[in-house]
Nucleic acid binder design. Sequence first.
DNA 1: TAGATTGTTAATCGATTAACAATC
DNA 2: TAGATTGTTAATCGATTAACAATC
Lengths: 221, 221
Amino acid sequence: MHTIGMPERHVPDIVVARLPLYLRALSALQLEGHAFISSKALGERLGIGPAQIRKDLSLFGDFGRQGKGYEVSVLLARLREILNIAHEWLMVLVGAGHLGSAVANYSGFAQRGFRLVAVFDNDPQRIGARIGEHVVRPASEMEQFVRAHSIRLAMIAVPASAAQAVADVLVHAGVRGILNYAPVTLNVPPGVRVENIDPVLHLQHMTYYLGEDGDEAIVSS
Amino acid sequence: MHTIGMPERHVPDIVVARLPLYLRALSALQLEGHAFISSKALGERLGIGPAQIRKDLSLFGDFGRQGKGYEVSVLLARLREILNIAHEWLMVLVGAGHLGSAVANYSGFAQRGFRLVAVFDNDPQRIGARIGEHVVRPASEMEQFVRAHSIRLAMIAVPASAAQAVADVLVHAGVRGILNYAPVTLNVPPGVRVENIDPVLHLQHMTYYLGEDGDEAIVSS
DNA sequence: TAGATTGTTAATCGATTAACAATC
DNA sequence: TAGATTGTTAATCGATTAACAATC
């Protein structure tokens, strides 16, 4: 039993990483018209054990109902609170090349509560160009902009060779979370979070199991 | 001690996931002119403990030299073998919207041994359009193409609602690894690997630690 | 040689899973 | 009520870390 409003016990980071996955599945379930969902059914959908889901959620309170499962709308609302995404977050993007343009055009951010408010680049060829709803601003204005708008989240889509310098400026300006698309490990001070997206890393992870030509028998999963 | 050529003992998936990270760092180190690197120095660069690096690598053989560390070129070559990326892989991409276009234009794939050979979409508006070096093909030709060229890797960049159906066709045609950009959990048979990229999941993971307005004290990392 | 760093063992730490009383 | 499913405990499983003899 867990008293509502009680401070949480320690939450492993790996559990935190699963919460957005639960949230995503629950959003879909709500659209499909489900009012309740059991840990078993949710687990099957996500390829996760039901005990793990119950254990994860129990760290934050008692959300379920014996015999019925979890009320989708309630769990959704609670997960949004836990993840601090009940309100909208503002973000900036640095890098307006192919990748940056795609990121700037991706509608999924706004749909899910992350609003891109500015795009920066240091290439004179790109500055002033339109990308989606944005006009590319000079990188020299980045620090001032981040400070002035109290931006806490940034995405980096510049070449690997420039990424660390960009991160340094962002952090200095007050950014606390960086989604890094550059294929390089960033060094940031304590208190700043970095998440990385490098699709090639995922491909290389898969080819390990596929064998030399992809015809290997696969045992593990 | 490990006899060269010996079959590997069981390799945890989490270790496999780190190998591409080591590879990426080693490539950079080679460009910077380093001939040798110690587990300590590599670990500092990656934010990983030196013992973990040595343990991971020891699963595949004895690559290091006491007192000196690892020879960068040797370790690079060996990691490429282990990950089965000594030769080039062919890929197809499904989805030619904003995201798909960016993926198709991303030069990092080819640079790192993954060659995109075809782009498919089912929107008549997009079929025939040029994206980078590619001309968008009708989705109806996808299955035949994948079979004819023995494609084993595919990337999905279609709306969430269409992703599962696309995956089903790809798997049926012989694809064994899918890099999924659609924000949905795919169901695939055993023997097929799926890796997911959903940037919003990463953002939500970070906001948990940032507090309601990003000014929270951060303890964990 | 002396210093540095490996590969490996054993200990620690942490996460997952199974089981079940509680209860809707 | 009977059936279903939760929240939690304890057991299992697996990964990380520290330590150090071996040795380049």
